[in-house]
Design a protein around this nucleic acid. Structure first.
Length: 444
RNA sequence: GGGUCGCUAGCUCAGCGGUAGAGCAUUCGGCUUUUAACCGAUUGGUCCUGAGUUCGAAUCUCAGGCGACCCA
């Protein structure tokens, strides 16, 4: 007995030859061929071949069979129009080649570009894996405000908005950090938030003004604990999404099998430039040495530490293709990180670089309210001096620290960049379903 | 922000100073094992927008719009 089936989906292609026709019907699970015979269908055959266009959504009933060429097909006995497409599908062979159209009309892209569908499935799998991995380790997911009176926790310009009834200016969050730390003060010892962050900055292949991060805080832990956590978490996600901890990104082999390289910023800069920043007593000495080595010395880099970071960005970052933990950052560029236990002028912080891109950022959190106040006040001064990305003083956050915060390790991972890596996507827009684009220009 | 490139039919593209084109899609006809079906015919245009040069501009120049890539 032939198997009776009912299927629904979108007609992708039509091949009509007189009294016989083949349609390709696709649903989310993939395509199947419809086998249509005039002899069996009668009037319905004429309707199907004359009324149904590529792009229409139809439902059919029939029996499963293989054609002479071996293609699994539904031999249709009944059909129903489910939704008529008024717009034609993009070219069935070339698909949507225009990347702008792919972003503006993502629905078309998803219909005709299997790889695009696969990217968003993998993104969902990556997010699901991260969430489960953390929950399995007793981390509690808590949502914190997007609308805030003071946007802190990162060096970035916020979006501004306004609450009408309260007549209150508000900012969209640029990080989840300061609220998650309040939760740690409140006694939640393992918390995380996986959510949207908004930064009022430029758009590029690596930046979208709204993007997704996961921030993780663990009480009674330090940045070494977060380093282990980061390594294990990302390796687990990679294994789940890619089936292996080794992958190819933009034709470069990247091996995420732990353990990953760990090196201090000083070591990496010295390796790349020959400059030992530990040997520079003041900014002028460091600046002269940098200039002699052919590096740019921006006037905004006002300390040895900032110059070190400049040298790192100019000569090291892009070279860090294999996963590398960069340890021990200058204190002045890390206002929320705890001073290093043994290295003056540095903090207990690492950033993870993969494929030349910052993928994670973590520290032993600064929990000393007095030190924190001084650091934020220094930030405030920079802001008043015109640095629009400098942070302000969040009094409520400082009040929370004054209540007493346990020593805590904190971590942030950029989900979009991680997903780019896992899906071999060249642009962040390829992993965001609806990336920000300018509205299409109208004449005049 | 700077540089390079792109924008022509619903889609993919050619045309680069002299009548606006092809393939696919649409519409019509033919065809009972196709799968980029095939064959014949048909339809479809603010050549991104505006100004300029020219007898004549999709084509050259300038300005603008949107996008891609590279750089900062």
């Amino acid at each position: 007995m032939p198997l009776e089936v009912a299927v629904a989906g979108r007609v992708m292609t039509r091949r009509v030859m007189g009294k016989l026709a083949f349609f390709t019907l696709s649903d989310e699970t993939g395509p199947i061929q419809l086998f249509l015979e005039k002899l069996a269908l009668g009037e319905a055959f004429t309707q199907l071949t004359s009324l149904v266009d590529a792009g229409d959504l139809i439902g059919v009933k029939g029996t499963l069979r293989r054609t002479d060429r071996g293609e699994l097909s539904v031999r249709v006995s009944e059909w129903q129009m489910l939704s008529k497409a008024l717009q034609p599908l993009p070219d069935k062979w070339h698909g949507l080649a225009d990347v702008e159209k792919r972003y503006r009309q993502r629905y078309l892209d998803l219909i005709v570009t299997p790889q695009s569908r696969e990217t968003f499935r993998r993104r969902a799998l990556a997010v699901r894996t991260i969430r489960r991995w953390l929950e399995d380790r007793q981390f509690l997911e808590i949502e914190t405000p997007v609308l805030q009176s003071e946007a802190g926790g990162a060096d970035a310009r916020p979006f501004t908005t306004h609450h009408n009834t309260l007549d209150l200016p508000l900012f969209l969050r640029i990080a989840t950090e300061l609220h998650l730390k309040r939760l740690v003060v409140g006694g939640f010892e393992r918390v995380f938030e996986l959510g949207r962050i908004f930064r009022n900055e430029g758009v590029s292949t690596r930046h979208n003004p709204e993007f997704t991060s996961v921030e993780v805080y663990q009480a009674y832990a330090d940045y070494y604990d977060m380093l282990e956590l980061t390594e294990q978490l990302i390796a687990a996600v990679t294994l789940e999404v890619c089936g292996s901890t080794a992958l190819t990104y933009q034709e470069v082999a990247i091996d995420l099998t732990p353990p990953w390289r760990r090196a201090t910023m000083h070591e990496l800069v010295q390796e790349a430039t020959g400059l030992d920043f530990n040997a520079f007593p003041d900014r002028e000495t460091a600046a002269a040495a940098m200039a002699a080595a052919g590096l740019e010395v921006p006037a905004t880099a006002t300390s040895v530490g900032r110059l070190l970071n400049e040298a790192f960005e100019q000569r090291v970052e892009a070279q860090l293709i294999q996963p590398t933990f960069v340890l021990d950052y200058p204190l002045e560029i890390s206002p929320l990180a705890r001073a290093h236990r043994s290295k003056p002028g540095l903090v207990e912080r690492f950033e993870l670089f993969i494929a030349g891109r910052e993928t994670a950022n973590a520290f032993s959190e600064l929990i000393d309210p007095i030190d924190q106040r001084q650091r934020l006040e220094a930030q405030q001064e920079r802001r008043l001096a015109g640095d629009l990305e400098a942070q302000g003083v969040d009094e409520d956050f400082l009040m929370a620290l004054e209540v007493g915060m346990p020593p805590t390790g904190g971590l942030g991972i950029g989900i979009d960049r991680l997903v780019m890596l896992l899906t071999d996507s060249a642009s962040i827009r390829d992993v965001i379903a609806f990336p920000l684009l300018r509205p299409e220009g109208r004449s005049g």
